[in-house]
Design a protein around this nucleic acid. Structure first.
Lengths: 220, 220
DNA sequence: ATTTATTTTTAGGCTAATCTAAAAAATAAA
DNA sequence: TTTATTTTTTAGATTAGCCTAAAAATAAAT
């Protein structure tokens, strides 16, 4: 249950890649890890023999549950440390990444749980990315129209579930992009349209069809 | 100006050993590092070629100024993290060492200086050992009878220079232990006895013989 | 459906930090 | 002062994580 910093970095990188492509390729990981493809293959064999991922040569790979669990814990540590650096040590949000890359490999479970409590269980890091809780559950993105957290809670756009130029044009026109912070102001039962407030803008309304395509997460 | 965790550990261990014996031996370091003597010799050659210590084969070794400087910075980091763990994350003083062994190798200078400020520039770690400041200066323990800092400055017992049961009984009776905070109230020139104030206690007086055995450091 | 290009893997090396076993130097003892 | 003991160093391996260069498998193009 103890992995080298390097292995943890691989698991984390694979985790991020496999949310985009369900099968990850050697080359993609080589780019992400800034390493040569041959090195990736070496490490894949080790991670496979430790039963952290499924992998068949020439066919790509993906984490299994065990691998995901570890990756998520590393991500949790990374984001909690970033939060600590910004909110307690007065770092700028743009200068915390490198330091967190080191801190995320400290192994004490107690350390990270106490840190979490000390920080009051934050749900988003300084870049707005969700911080998984100690059981590994993310403050997971939800469709804007199905949002269950209360009105006026700050939310942040994490993805758009359609890449058709029609919806992108619409969102672009309303200045809604990945990362945009917004709040729900009102839901109209008549047509399930939603009134939103984006910072420094007049309130805008989106239809149910649009809201279905926008994924947001809690961002308090 | 960047050294591996392993090298930092060697420098730190040598630093501690050379306060006791001015020339450190391969075997002594092997014991301290829990490694075989052959491994020590290997590393000594590397550290020598990096100009961190003086070393002649078969003759022992000691850190030069550059080596000491690095060792002290590692010790500073270790002790600041211990302080953080105890005072902010509610660790017990007896469970912080291992975690600090990892944290001390994080390389960001800014991190450690911001942490220092966040903690309000503490001068002693949870074990009562002095924390060097950012320039590397120690708040070093002094014999209670030779104390040069002003009256009523809070001081903290860092060690007792004798383990005979006679003196331990006396100190125990007066509730003076390692870690006890006290202030000097008065020095009597007649017999060099000293009047002390320990928190929540009536003032007490100790003889010169006792004061000589008590080492304290500044603890404001 | 071959040929060509790309991707991935294998084969063999390198470095840091460790180890064991054996040789050499220093120290202690007879 | 020679011999024995202890300490230290050398010599040669090992492991993790990376590399380059070449071979093998897959994918793309004609």
């Amino acid at each position: 249950m103890k992995y080298s910093a390097s292995k943890e970095d691989y698991l984390k990188a694979i985790f991020h890649l496999q949310t985009e492509q369900s099968m990850v390729t050697t080359n993609a990981l080589a780019v992400a890890m800034q390493a040569r493809p041959a090195s990736i293959t070496d490490m894949l064999k080790k991670l496979k023999s430790e039963k952290l991922l499924i992998y068949e040569r020439y066919k790509g790979f993906r984490l299994n549950n065990e691998g995901k669990k570890i990756a998520v814990q590393v991500i949790r540590k990374h984001r909690l440390w970033e939060y600590f650096l910004v909110h307690k040590l007065k770092f700028g949000w743009d200068e915390v990444h490198e330091v967190a890359e080191e801190l995320e490999h400290i192994t004490s479970k107690k350390l990270i749980d106490q840190l979490d409590a000390f920080l009051n269980f934050p749900v988003t890091d300084p870049h707005g990315d969700p911080i998984p809780d100690r059981s590994g559950k993310f403050n997971s993105p939800k469709q804007l129209n199905l949002l269950d957290f209360p009105m006026n809670t700050p939310a942040k756009v994490s993805s758009v579930a359609s890449q058709t130029s029609d919806i992108l044009e619409l969102l672009d026109h309303k200045s809604i992009h990945i990362g945009t912070r917004l709040e729900i102001r009102k839901k109209f039962l008549f047509d399930n349209s939603i009134e939103l407030k984006v910072k420094n803008q007049a309130p805008i309304t989106v239809s149910e069809q649009v809201a279905q395509k926008i994924f947001v997460h809690n961002d308090e």
